[in-house]
């Protein structure tokens, strides 16, 4: 495959580097999980391979259940690279919310509709036992024009498949923390998101929301005592 040393580096996070390339005529990003020198090499290798697989699994399961995620073009399981669709012509939910909030004539109905969309999308996702692992408004994109609410979930780097209310509760908690700190005075909006989540999730929602309450009390990490 093409040589990444010549590719444009788009972003570097704690887990991976993101490059932009042309993949057989399509705009493409390459996610490279680099080696962590602080980990034992064997452990690092197996963790990286596992996470790459988990990420692919979560993305594919989303799509087969009607949640838009980037198209996967190629997985290099030797170098742990994921080649996927580079989604252009979109805004992050984060920027969209901020723009509406900062606009004195901003239409709050737009925000309400958005919260309902996000809530019901996450309900489907959790119903299918997909845990995103890093839900933030930056990891949600809206294809232009954003009013049409074509929601795309990205960065399943910490994603996995699990049918535990606890993990789903934590997933929502991470989003709540990120949401309220990024967008001030949005408690009521977030409540709307949870309502729409509960409505679309159906039976299992009660338990997840109870877990969310529990996690709010104690924080993301489970206590090790007792």
């Amino acid at each position: 495959m093409s040589d990444l040393s010549k590719a444009t580096l788009l972003k570097q996070g704690a887990e991976a580097k993101i490059y932009v390339i042309d993949f057989l005529g399509k705009p493409c990003i390459v996610k490279e999980r680099f080696q962590k020198t602080y980990r034992h090499p064997d452990l690092d290798k197996s963790l990286t391979a596992q996470r790459t697989k988990s990420e692919i699994r979560s993305m594919l399961r989303c799509r087969t259940n009607g949640i838009r995620t980037p198209v996967i073009y190629f997985v290099d399981q030797i170098k742990n690279l994921i080649y996927m669709e580079y989604i252009q012509d979109s805004v992050t939910v984060r920027d969209y919310v901020t723009a509406i909030q900062n606009n004195p004539d901003g239409d709050t109905h737009l925000l309400e509709a958005l919260m309902q969309k996000v809530g019901s999308t996450l309900a489907t996702m959790h119903e299918k036992n997909i845990i995103h692992g890093d839900l933030t408004t930056s990891n949600m994109l809206l294809r232009n024009p954003p009013e049409e609410l074509n929601l795309i979930l990205i960065d399943f780097g910490l994603g996995y498949i699990e049918n535990l209310a606890e993990d789903k509760g934590v997933d929502l908690y991470v989003l709540e923390r990120a949401f309220l700190s990024t967008h001030p005075n949005t408690e009521a909006l977030f409540e709307l998101l949870l309502q729409s989540y509960a409505k679309d999730y159906g039976k299992g929602a009660v338990e997840v929301l109870r877990k969310l309450d529990e996690v709010r009390q104690r924080g993301r990490k489970r206590t090790m005592v007792g």
Partner: peptide, 23 residues
């Protein structure tokens, strides 16, 4: 069918080709 509500047939096909060793 639900997958085709959010993407094309080509996208669905490519996704499966790329990930068949994993999923």
């Amino acid at each position: 069918d639900i997958e085709l509500s959010i993407g094309t047939v080509l996208e669905a096909v490519v996704n499966r080709i790329a990930s068949k060793d994993i999923v």
